[in-house]
Lab assay of single mutants.
Amino acid sequence: NITNLCPFDEVFNATRFASVYAWNRKRISNCVADYSVLYNFAPFFAFKCYGVSPTKLNDLCFTNVYADSFVIRGNEVSQIAPGQTGNIADYNYKLPDDFTGCVIAWNSNKLDSKVGGNYNYLYRLFRKSNLKPFERDISTEIYQAGNKPCNGVAGFNCYFPLRSYGFRPTYGVGHQPYRVVVLSFELLHAPATVCGPKKST
């Protein structure tokens, strides 16, 4: 009989979020998941679920829940969905086509923008091939755009693969920082350890 609540607040209220190319993952297990707390949290810009209804989450049990978190621009949030393409979905964070879970995003301009620009948040701009679902690539190898080998030196046709967002408070909404948490639900042939409040007695 599990009684402790799942530590969703640790994920959602973290002081610093990860850059999207180096997205953070927390495994959540052996706890009671009260999703209504999240669902009623006012400032969400997006709360979209795939393969599961957000209002039914509290009735369900899962083997594991993974909480992935990172920061992207407002106009990139739409790429955090199954079957998407674009710089983020291709080179930074890719969801599987059969994704079961929820994508939760909110504007973090007050936290993550600075006058003069916040350059701490990076994304991958160049990559030889697209990421596989949930693949994480933190390499900083110089990207070779031409035929000539770069030998690890940036220059003509040789690019550092990461780019900084440089968030400023005055940017338009599409270019403002958004914090994103992706909850993915794993249902294995194993005992369920993460259940909603109704199922955990």
Rank of each mutant, 00 (worst) to 15 (best):
T3H: 08
L5Q: 11
C6F: 05
F8Q: 01
F8V: 04
E10D: 10
V11S: 02
T15A: 08
T15D: 09
R16F: 09
V20I: 06
Y21A: 05
A22H: 09
N24L: 03
K26M: 09
K26H: 07
S29C: 08
N30Y: 05
N30E: 07
V32C: 10
D34P: 04
Y35H: 05
S36K: 12
S36A: 09
V37R: 14
L38E: 03
F41K: 11
F45R: 14
F45K: 15
A46D: 10
A46Q: 15
A46I: 14
F47M: 10
F47Q: 03
C49D: 00
C49W: 08
Y50A: 01
G51P: 00
V52M: 07
V52E: 02
V52S: 02
P54H: 10
P54A: 14
L57A: 06
N58C: 06
N58G: 11
D59G: 09
D59S: 13
T63C: 07
N64A: 15
N64M: 09
A67D: 01
D68V: 01
S69F: 03
S69M: 05
S69G: 01
S69A: 05
S69N: 02
V71G: 01
I72M: 04
R73E: 10
R73K: 12
G74N: 03
V77S: 05
I80T: 03
P82M: 00
Q84L: 03
T85D: 07
I88N: 02
I88M: 02
A89R: 02
A89F: 01
D90R: 11
Y91W: 07
Y91C: 06
Y91N: 08
Y91D: 03
K94A: 05
L95D: 01
D97N: 11
D98R: 09
F99R: 00
G101W: 00
C102H: 00
W106P: 00
W106C: 04
W106Q: 03
S108N: 04
D112P: 03
G116D: 14
Y119V: 13
N120T: 11
Y121S: 06
R124N: 04
L125C: 13
F126T: 14
R127V: 02
K128R: 12
K132L: 10
K132N: 10
K132Q: 11
F134P: 03
E135W: 04
I138N: 15
S139D: 10
S139V: 05
S139Y: 04
I142E: 07
Y143W: 11
Q144R: 10
A145Q: 13
N147C: 10
K148I: 12
P149M: 10
P149S: 15
P149H: 12
C150N: 06
C150E: 06
N151I: 08
N151C: 08
V153T: 14
N157C: 08
N157D: 15
F160G: 11
P161G: 06
P161L: 03
P161I: 02
L162S: 03
Y165L: 04
R168T: 11
R168K: 14
P169G: 08
T170E: 15
Y171E: 15
H175K: 10
P177G: 02
P177V: 03
R179A: 03
V180D: 00
V180W: 01
L183A: 00
L183S: 00
S184V: 11
F185V: 05
A190T: 13
P191K: 14
P191D: 14
A192E: 12
T193C: 08
T193M: 11
V194D: 12
K199R: 14
